[in-house]
Amino acid sequence: MKALNQVFTNYKDASPDDLIPILQDIQAQEGYLSEASVREVSSFLHLPASRIFGVATFYNQFRFTPTGKYHISVCRGTACHVLGSATVLEELEKKLKIKAGNTSRDGLFSIEVVACIGACGLAPVISINGEFHAKVDRNAIHRIIDEIIAKNAENEDNK
């Protein structure tokens, strides 16, 4: 796998201590940690796959499925929590029929929970592919998602 070799070249004399930065680099590049990349890291660092998976699942930041075409970050920081982000997340999960951390079957959406986006004035806030949606509630979730689905279908038709 060429792409990972590029990551590995940044880690000369790598030791198991470099595991987390390496996983971060891979995720930044590939969007998630695949079984194949874990296998590569395992032979690069001489670490068992179970240990790598154990470390990676300890941290919220790592995911094991590719992100969807539309990647939704739901802020669960204090301000958003107080203003109802739990409901927002629940509604989103129900609407898309997936749990946070997963990707929908059609590959269109994925949900990620983040600690704080740093936009507390807009709470509760979600970000879709980097675009912020402020003060969202149940209704807003349905509107936003339906719009994306419609727009996506239109684009597909035009192709």
Partner: peptide, 27 residues
């Protein structure tokens, strides 16, 4: 062999194999 390790954390912690698969596909 190290087929199993701690995965997840907090009250979701469990012992499992890589990618939460079955023992049969592990080492």
């Amino acid at each position: 062999v190290h087929a199993i390790d701690f995965i997840n954390r907090g009250n979701k912690s469990e012992i499992g194999v890589a990618f939460d698969k079955g023992l049969n596909t592990s080492s």
